[in-house]
């Protein structure tokens, strides 16, 4: 409940920021309120940007430029995804800016409960260090700029993202450096990195 209240406050703030630039947009979707568009997001990504669905990432606390880039790629058909490419088609520039600000403003999910597999976490930490993940994703793995937050991300989604990079399925930002990193990880490595990242508090 408290999370929902916070997210509504953040939504209000994001809407206020975006209102000024709304006038310049003349896209088909421009007359639909941002609030209604965000409700569509929350259908899968969760009302507070924390997903309860396998394969759907958490967006709460994601760097704003990261969210914006991905929406720009979906809208421009660079990144093809059954759900997201059509959803993003009619978003305006100011919608995308507002969504970037909105998801950044939501409290990032923190891992709860005891670690189900501390050994796996340890193996993941070692790999993260060897592969220099922190160089771009920051020392806490909270992400920065266009680089996504990994801390607290859903474990199975990180696995999916690394598989997508391995197979060249993921287009857009990240496809310069991530394919080679993902390629050299085996399935056990991927499981370990994903488990480790999902357990990070991000601060």
């Amino acid at each position: 409940m408290s999370r929902f209240v916070i997210s509504l406050c953040a939504l209000g703030a994001a809407l206020a920021v975006g209102a000024a630039s709304r006038a310049e947009d003349a896209k088909p979707g421009a007359d639909i309120a941002l609030k209604d568009k965000l409700e569509i997001c929350s259908g899968c990504h969760g009302p507070a940007g924390v997903s309860q669905i396998d394969g759907v990432p958490n967006l709460a606390g994601a760097p704003d430029l990261f969210t914006e880039w991905q929406l720009v790629y979906f809208r421009g058909e660079t990144r093809m995804n059954e759900q997201m490419t059509p959803q993003a088609k009619d978003l305006t520039d100011s919608d995308i800016r507002d969504m970037g600000a909105y998801f950044l403003s939501l409290p990032a999910p923190a891992p709860t409960g005891p670690d189900s597999d501390p050994a796996l976490t340890q193996a993941g930490a070692k790999l993260a260090n060897e592969r220099h993940c922190a160089q771009c994703h920051t020392e806490t793995f909270a992400g920065q700029g266009e680089v996504p937050r990994l801390a607290g991300q859903r474990e199975e989604f990180i696995v999916k993202a690394l598989h997508d990079y391995q197979h060249g399925a993921r287009r857009g930002r990240g496809n310069v450096i991530m394919p080679e990193i993902a390629y050299s990880l085996n399935e056990d490595d991927i499981k370990a990195v994903a488990h480790f990242m999902s357990r990070q508090p991000g601060k």
Partner: peptide, 12 residues
């Protein structure tokens, strides 16, 4: 450490 390519700006 921490030197990374300049973040691109997604929107014009």
């Amino acid at each position: 450490r921490g030197l990374v390519p300049v973040p691109g700006q997604p929107l014009p």
